[in-house]
């Protein structure tokens, strides 16, 4: 991912005037500034105020609370529990999604057109399914009474959503199902872009599959792997619909809450908008830290944005 810098280096060409990039960026900046940055600013603001439904609808005045909302969530043991669950769950999702996606991408390159088309279409189908629907279908498949999965596995009326781990596992399966296609298609496209001869030469040289992958493919695919990893981290950390629908808003006694759902429940179910906002801000900061650390590691290894 190196930047084409030939044009911009010389200043004589019309495209290279320094105002031009800003002109091109203007529409994006206006939209993002107005509809993303400003709401985030509002979110941060709300997190410092006492802001419940009564304040929102003008029944009571808003009052500045300083860091009280943050103090409240940090002193709540449930918050830490949810945070830990979120991190572990997101990590499990990222690792599973990436490994399934990459493995299947490699598989795609090894098969002829018909099986490739079949797998591709199935994956695109999973990708196209709305999250709400995907979650419902998976619930129906694993339903203790009406689902075929328990019947096939001979589990009787075992309830998948009762245990904390099994509920998380069920959600994980659904998340992997609907997010591996992105990884698979992207990595597959990346492998295809690698000249076939290079691969064949390597494998003919007697290098094992693993070695081919490690010393030939991985370096060439690195930029694409960076992209899918960052995207997976971002998406999986924010999994919302699946948890919300499949564990009915956070599971038995809130055991399957993740930060995003927890924030939503605080904000909308309990009308504690300020607490929900504070959790949202904390989440944003965590994601930011993770990504920046990751980017820094990359840069140290010589990658450039």
């Amino acid at each position: 991912m190196r930047v084409g810098r030939g044009l911009s280096r010389s200043s004589s060409r019309p495209l290279a005037r320094s105002s031009v990039p800003w002109l091109y960026l203007a529409p994006a900046l206006v939209v993002l500034g107005g509809l993303l940055l400003y709401p985030v600013y509002q979110l941060g603001l709300i997190s410092f105020f006492q802001y419940t439904q009564a304040q929102v609808s003008g029944g009571q005045p808003t009052t500045f609370e300083g860091l009280a909302n943050y103090r409240e969530i940090f002193s709540d043991s449930q918050f830490w529990q949810v945070l830990l669950a979120t991190v572990l769950f997101a990590a499990a999702c990222v690792v599973s999604t990436l490994s399934v996606g990459c493995a299947l991408a490699v598989l795609l390159t090894r098969v002829r057109a018909l099986p490739r088309l079949a797998l591709m279409l199935a994956a695109l189908g999973a990708w196209a399914t709305p999250a709400v629907t995907g979650s419902t279908v998976w619930l129906l498949l694993f339903d203790p009474d009406f689902g075929p999965v328990n019947r096939v596995l001979g589990l009787g009326d075992h309830s998948w959503t009762y245990g904390r781990l099994s509920a998380f596992l069920l959600v994980l399966l659904e998340v992997v199902w609907c997010s591996f296609p992105f990884v698979m298609v992207t990595v597959y496209a990346g492998i295809r872009a690698v000249p076939a001869e290079v691969l064949e030469a390597a494998s003919l040289d007697g290098a094992s599959q693993l070695r081919v992958w490690r010393s030939v493919l991985a370096p060439m695919l690195r930029p694409i792997l960076v992209v899918v990893t960052i995207q997976s981290v971002i998406w999986d950390f924010k999994v919302f619909t699946q948890i919300y629908v499949m564990t009915n808003g956070g599971g038995i006694a809130g055991q399957n809450l993740t930060l995003n759902v927890y924030a939503y429940q605080q904000a909308f179910a309990s009308s504690q908008y300020s607490l929900g906002s504070a959790i949202g801000i904390v989440m944003l900061l965590i994601l930011l830290a993770v990504t920046l650390v990751y980017l820094r590691l990359l840069r140290r290894q010589g990658e450039e944005l």
Partner: peptide, 12 residues
């Protein structure tokens, strides 16, 4: 930024 430094509310 209709209101400068407080979150928005509605007049109900």
């Amino acid at each position: 930024t209709a209101t400068a430094c407080a979150p928005e509310t509605s007049d109900n």
